[in-house]
Design a protein around this nucleic acid. Sequence first.
DNA 1: GTCTATATTTCGATAGAC
DNA 2: GTCTATCGAAATATAGAC
Lengths: 210, 210
Amino acid sequence: MARPPARPAGEKSTREQILDVALELFTANGYEKTSLREIAERMNFSKAALYYHFASKDDILLALHLRLHEIGQAGLERIEMDRVRPADWVRMIDEFVDLLLENRQLFMFHLRNHAALENLQNHEHDGANQDIEERARRLLSDPGIPQARRLRLSFALGAVMIGLVMSGDLFASTPTEELRVELRSVVRDILEPGGVSPDADRESSQLLPR
Amino acid sequence: MARPPARPAGEKSTREQILDVALELFTANGYEKTSLREIAERMNFSKAALYYHFASKDDILLALHLRLHEIGQAGLERIEMDRVRPADWVRMIDEFVDLLLENRQLFMFHLRNHAALENLQNHEHDGANQDIEERARRLLSDPGIPQARRLRLSFALGAVMIGLVMSGDLFASTPTEELRVELRSVVRDILEPGGVSPDADRESSQLLPR
DNA sequence: GTCTATATTTCGATAGAC
DNA sequence: GTCTATCGAAATATAGAC
């Protein structure tokens, strides 16, 4: 076992601190608009010092991609996306909502820098079907599922994603739990309009005040 | 009246052609990653020539912003957002869906380059409440409306936007009309779950195949 | 309106001292 | 691990001829 460096508990390595700063700046201003000088200034050391910890700017982006990838993999297990059948879609997106709410910043980083992340070389596009994003793409492209249902599934995902973005902006003061409840409720209304599964646990609180 | 330059009908000015190219490249690759050299190459003339038509790169971005702004203004009139009451929300978003479907590329350009557009100086932020985006923001922040309803409104907007993005990607082969019908249907399911207004013209075609 | 040539700036990256 | 100094590339922008 390689021994992790001795460091006071609760204190992050310089490398992790750099990643935290980069995550913040990339999310706020975008990968292209964020310069290494900017990151270095926030770290209170010179630009060249960054190159001791990372081989290149792309390497920083890659490390952040890996952070997200690991979370995505863990999410895949939780969601058990392999064996997901149409009847499980609501549960699947519920898990997805939880995953997003637990990792808001990383997710918003991914939304904002989607293009830059795609341009990373490393990507083993051996059709691995390993990535959570690729898995979703397959599901939404599956010709064995009626088009209307796939469209609705994508709309549900869209509502969830935008809901998350808004939560960090317009609804910053809204408690996470209220967001979660309302998001789950909306997912049901999209995927099971009219309450197809009346036995399902509909968590929605306050609906429309007629 | 300043007379527009004499030009064969149906032929665009060089300036407009530049804007078309820029719109395409900014949408595909982003504002920061698109260089003036790239635009000039596509126009088959030199980079310097661009500066005859535009004072700066930002000036090109500004011109595209104005294109979008005009459409937004026209949309505001169509939607009559001033006098919109909660009961009109579904109709309002229906109009919004139409507006988006008619201006997909400009809208996707705006989504992708939202940050760059915000950084444009010009923005008269005199709280003008003139922009369609600002108007929506106010609506979603109005404390006079129950939080749950505002959340649902934002989710509906999110579903519509993502639906549009997907339409250019995963659902590129889906006819516009099918998209429009399904989008409208979903908006109703989000804003009026359970069919609050049974007399409303629900256009949804094929719902869930139980 | 478009060209060539060049100024100016910024950025990612490297070399080598400490 | 961090520094100073600098390189080379690419970008925006300008000057001035045609």
